[in-house]
Design a protein around this nucleic acid. Structure first.
Lengths: 192, 192
DNA sequence: TTACTTATGGTGCAGAGTATTCCATAGCGA
DNA sequence: TCGCTATGGAATACTCTGCACCATAAGTAA
């Protein structure tokens, strides 16, 4: 791999990220070709492969970046034992970057997002979870992640979107709380 | 399209279905080519296109078939207002056809399954739903379907799978009941 | 059985896309 | 300034899709 500090490399990588997000806004991921990407980014065809082994790898990188930013917002608040504040912060953050998340999720990248989400959740939150009751921990994690993405997807697609607080309410009510209380996290403060 | 009663056509279509399931057992859907399909099915390359416009269309057909069979089991029981019996029947049915569902869902076809699932759920159950409370009906449907598939996926992947009744318990507890009770379906008999 | 209909198999072909190579060039850092 | 390296451009080999044409064999109705 090349030096990630070289301004030329940084420029190329950023151009590719922007181009991918721009094209995702126009067509689904599967229909985007590498030639289109490099044309949109204004870089050479070969240069793409010098940075990413495949089209999927580029998307994975973008997805991981964004999910990481999302979790950096939500996890610390969740650690403070306030589920409702954490979920409200999460949906507010997405609302602030609505266009980016819409193109990313509805553009056919939901599957990748989900994979990266699970990977990061497993790294950041799994170690601090010890109890285990009715629902196996792996299962619980998968259900929460997929429920979260599904809810975000629906929210971003809806014509007259609910305010973030209200989506956070739904999230707490039917996604997070059922799983967390089933596994003995009933002590969390929950939103009304 | 050709006559669906002609024994030759029936034979070709069945061969393609079997070939797809067989190949899904060996590699993810994205890596399967039409040439591999026709080779596995023992039919000519052109014959594929005489039956299906694309590789995806074939998978959609298979997915719709299987989901339809699944719903024919679960929906009547759900109509009888017994959620736990319905979900137990659903997971038992999948358990009886474990190999097929494993190859279908873990073979990278989960997305298609999900789409067909939503389509069929919308057709079969949506018309009979009238009430609407905390969670919008579209949102509730998406959450239940994706939760169901996610749970099935986890269950099929797990090394020491729980018995169907136990998965049905988890399903009732953290997927179905939270959404149904939130929307005023509290009157349903629920499993202990 | 005979004759008609139709699904099939084989081949070839055009087009698109991927992934790699080679080489000259321009940008970057010391 | 000078060496290093990312880049652009072209050429190439390869795979896959989707459709053409045509002879053949399977199926159907008389």
């Amino acid at each position: 791999m090349q030096a990630l500090t070289d301004p030329r490399a940084v420029r190329s990588r950023k151009a590719l990220h922007d181009a991918m997000l721009s094209l995702l806004d126009q067509k689904p991921f599967a229909d985007i070709t590498i030639r289109e990407l490099v044309a949109e980014a204004g870089i050479g065809y070969n240069t793409f492969f010098r940075h990413h082994p495949s089209k999927d790898a580029l998307l994975d990188e973008i997805a991981a970046e964004q999910i990481s930013a999302l979790l950096e917002i939500a996890v610390p608040i969740l650690d403070a034992q306030d589920l409702h504040a954490a979920s409200t912060a999460l949906f507010s953050y997405i609302d602030e970057h609505r266009i980016m998340w819409t193109t990313l999720i509805t553009g056919g990248a939901a599957g990748r997002i989900r994979e990266e989400f699970i990977k990061l959740v497993r790294l950041t939150t799994a170690p601090r979870i010890t109890t285990q009751e009715k629902v196996p921990i792996d299962c619980a994690m998968l259900l929460i992640v997929s429920g979260t993405i599904e809810l975000i997807d629906w929210w971003l697609r809806s014509e007259t979107p609910l305010p973030p607080e209200q989506v956070a309410d739904i999230f707490d009510l039917v996604v997070a709380s059922p799983i967390m209380t089933a596994n003995g996290y009933g002590g969390l403060k929950r939103g009304a």
